[in-house]
């Protein structure tokens, strides 16, 4: 059955874990160096723009992880292979943390630029809604006792969430044009100068590596839990 195949790959990757974590750390430190020391402050926002280097990658990965989650739910419906559920279940908490980081750093960044901790900016609001979707998905696994049922329900929920992201995006943007005072749009990435692009890309790469490491760890945990479950049955 499919179940055996990925096991071998994941056991293989498991041995690479320490190296993977190390490279993530190195890339992260390089990214930090570039974003803090080696890039000019923005002419308008000054140094507070450096928060962008950790806010924007977190937002990208938050959305990226949810798309991955929803994609594995769709694949589970099509191929009925239990592994896809494990993928979705492993990525969910990581994606939720990235969304949380994006929210917190976004509001910290907002303080100097708009003077308030929270502004109903279109992207921040969508990020907040995305956080709700993550919490809903994670809670499905906890509150439904019978695990086969929980797998089916959470898969359905993942897909529902995914269908709703464009709808929510569309309505929040439209709503934003209705109430949007002009100044707030400044939070959108300021005119990216080449010297600012490099730290952003390095940090994004570091985030992706970190996501991969955590995903691998979470997946291994889920697979072991499956084995323990099956062993006790």
């Amino acid at each position: 059955m499919y179940f055996k195949l990925p096991n071998k790959i994941i056991d293989e990757l498991r041995r690479w874990l320490p190296i993977l974590s190390l490279t993530t750390l190195i890339v992260f430190l390089v990214g930090l160096y570039f974003s803090i020391l080696n890039s000019p402050p923005d002419y308008l926002q000054g140094d507070s723009m450096r928060i962008m280097y950790i806010h924007v990658p977190a937002a990208w990965l938050a959305l990226g992880s949810y798309s991955f989650l929803a994609l594995s739910c769709v694949c589970w419906f099509i191929f009925r292979n239990p592994n896809f559920n494990l993928f979705a279940k492993s990525i969910a908490p990581i994606g939720a943390i990235f969304t949380l980081i994006a929210l917190v750093t976004g509001s910290i960044w907002g303080k100097p630029t708009w003077g308030t901790w929270w502004a109903w900016d279109a992207r921040l609001t969508s990020m907040l809604i995305l956080f709700f979707l993550y919490v809903a998905y994670i809670m499905t696994w906890q509150s439904i006792v019978n695990k086969e049922l929980a797998a089916k329900i959470s898969a359905a929920l993942g897909v529902i969430g995914f269908i709703n992201i464009p709808i929510i995006k569309f309505s929040v943007d439209w709503w934003n044009t209705l109430h949007q005072p002009a100044t707030i749009s400044k939070l959108s990435a300021p005119s990216i100068h080449i010297s600012m692009l490099t730290p952003l890309l390095i940090m994004t790469f570091a985030y992706i590596l970190f996501l991969a490491t955590l995903f691998l760890i979470r997946l291994k945990i889920e697979i072991i839990e499956q084995k323990i479950l099956r062993a006790n049955k």
Partner: peptide, 19 residues
């Protein structure tokens, strides 16, 4: 089938009601 139905349902539904 879920135990803690109350809050859990609302958390799922609120984002879907926003549009």
């Amino acid at each position: 089938g879920s135990k803690r139905a109350g809050i859990y349902k609302t958390i799922i539904i609120i984002p879907l009601y926003i549009p």
